[in-house]
Every structure is written in C-alpha cells, then in structure tokens.
Amino acid sequence: MRLERRRLLAAGIVTAAGAVFGASGLAQAKERVIRVTARKFAFLPREIRLKKGVPVVLEFVTADVVMGFNAPDFHVRADIIPGKVSRLRLVPDKTGTFVFLCDIFCGDGHEGMSGQIHVVA
C-alpha cells in the first residue's frame, strides 16, 4: 500500500483515500471543482476537459445506487454513494484522451457506463 501510494504521489496524483475533502475544502478551495452526476447508466458530463498539471476536484453525486468512478490511466477511483458527495483531487500528468468508467456493477447497462477525460497542454 505504501509503495502504491508513493508511486501515485510521484505521478502527481493522489488517490481518493488521500484526497476526499471535508466540507470545508480547506486549502483546495480555489481549485476548479467539476461536479459529475452518476445515474443508471451514464455519467453527466460524459466528457471532462482538463489541463495538464492543473489540479481539479471532481465531485460525484448519485441519486440511484452505489456506483464507482475509475480513471485507470491516472490510477484514481472513488465510490459514489447515494446521499453523499465524494470528492477526488486529480492532477493530470499527461495529455491525451483517457477513459473513465463505473467500476461497481450497477445493473443491466453498467458495461456501457463510461466517459472520457481530455487533457490538453
């Protein structure tokens, strides 16, 4: 676990466990916040546009069932729980188009529940 965390920190990325913020937001208050709504079986927005090296806070909500947000290329994920707001800080360390997907099986249609992160320089 420690090795994994070091690896992610080295990549400029902090996982959900280390980056779920309290309600105050504290030092990250000035960072851009993008709210993502998960519902059966889609993310809104489906496309997220970011800049390399610029931190953002992704804020997840759902009114349906427990879902997951996973962006494997950045080694980050978060649970999305009805009635709660999950937050994930992401500092993209590369440019390109990358997949994100729901990684908690949530019903018939789960397998099509994905979107894209576009990172520009």
Partner: peptide
C-alpha cells in the same frame, strides 16, 4: 491481473 482496466477487465 490488470488485463485492461479501462474496460473493467481486472479484479480490484
């Protein structure tokens, strides 16, 4: 193993 997590082809 992580065959292709982008398509959920993995075990956490």
């Amino acid at each position: 193993f992580d065959l292709y997590p982008q398509w959920d082809w993995a075990t956490r």
